[in-house]
Design a protein around this nucleic acid. Structure first.
Lengths: 213, 213
DNA sequence: ATCGTTAATTTAACACCGTTAACTTAAAAT
DNA sequence: ATTTTAAGTTAACGGTGTTAAATTAACGAT
């Protein structure tokens, strides 16, 4: 028993409900295991309706991730207040890791699942916008520290440093999420793994290793 | 025009052909994009035949991966001959990374996908067996270097070191696999990312940072 | 040699999937 | 009062993983 011409506001509301339902199911059971029909049923619509809001399943997935990226970025922005550059880098790294481990399934969607390369036209996130992009914030701090000469002189490219820092934290977190309770690995506590990684990689990058911690 | 009672040897041969066809297609186009029917057609059999050799698509996938990880482990075993301990660690790390980037779809399945109950019963790989398990080999070298006093003295647990080294390489590789062609990141070349990570983390872990490279 | 058995393989079908064309319905615009 | 518009539906297409049932050919025993 269908239609009622809806206001633009209502349309946005339905869009949001679709995204929320999709996220819940994706996170519960994995992307491939969730069908468009299921998502639709969860909010009492037919599957076709989803296609009036999103071009296809990938676009819906992209929308789910976009929201989570924004949330992550806004959480990180608060940490950018710390005055000491190295402490700020450490705080960003720690904040990122806590997000990953607190919302492992979101993290999986965002950073561990190869998806069709996002059409920049389709994403609503302004990449590079510090307000919206967590990686842009890391780049910002790293550049500042780079310009201040804090890193070893043979490293000539600051973005390479940012990507290395990112990869180190991502390595610890994603391994924990993917294999954290495999019985054949005697994992050391995740905190100790995170701390050693952060210490080691920073010591390895900084001109003065003893300035860390 | 079907059957001919086949010897046990022939049965093994067909099993191998299925695995090879599956691997080729998985690597070419990704796991989800390849259907059982396609794999079967590639070797001129019907889809049903695959199910007489493998319980389902996952089991086939697992068989493909098992083969490749045995190959990985055996490839790594050769690198274990290097006399210098640090060079040996570096070589293991590089070998691991090259495997990950050459077979991103297998790597994704083994190390980037959380498995519910851990398929230890199904896998034919003996974990911990140095001949078959790549992580066991890393542990072996790290322990040797640890006992030789090569690492910084405040690090008291050698397995923590092994896991940190693993996570660092995994971080670079898995980020590349998941987000390597996202247009909103200006990725530095993967080689440079790998090299800096390896240098940095080793310098950060070693008692004598200048012994690296 | 012929029978029954057995194993390899196929065809046909089931219940899903993502997606789309065609249709319904009710409100808004004329 | 009629037309237009858009939200929503049903029904279908061609695909998927998987399985039940049928087919075929070689073997062992009679």
């Amino acid at each position: 028993m269908p239609p009622k011409v809806k206001s633009l506001e209502d349309r946005e509301k339905l869009r949001a409900r679709i995204i929320d339902a999709a996220r819940t199911l994706f996170v519960e059971r994995g992307i491939e295991a969730v069908s468009m029909r299921e998502i639709a049923k969860k909010i009492n619509y037919s599957a076709t309706t989803l296609y009036h809001h999103f071009a296809d399943k990938d676009a819906l997935l992209q929308a789910v991730c976009d929201e989570d990226f924004l949330k992550l970025a806004s959480g990180m922005r608060e940490l950018m207040q710390l005055p000491n550059l190295i402490e700020r880098i450490q705080a960003l790294s720690k904040g990122y890791a806590m997000f990953a481990l607190q919302y492992p399934n979101h993290y999986r969607l965002m950073f561990m699942t190869p998806r069709a390369p996002c059409n920049l036209d389709i994403t609503e996130i302004e990449q590079g916008n510090t307000e919206q992009d967590a990686y842009a914030q890391l780049k910002l701090v790293v550049k500042e520290a780079f310009d201040a000469g804090l890193f070893r002189p043979e490293i000539t490219h600051f973005e390479l440093i940012a990507q290395t820092l990112w990869a180190s934290t991502h390595g610890v977190c994603s391994l924990e999420i993917a294999l954290g309770n495999e019985p054949w690995i005697q994992w050391v506590e995740i905190d100790r793994r995170f701390n050693l990684m952060q210490r080691a990689v920073l010591r390895g990058l900084l001109r003065d290793p003893d300035s860390v911690e």
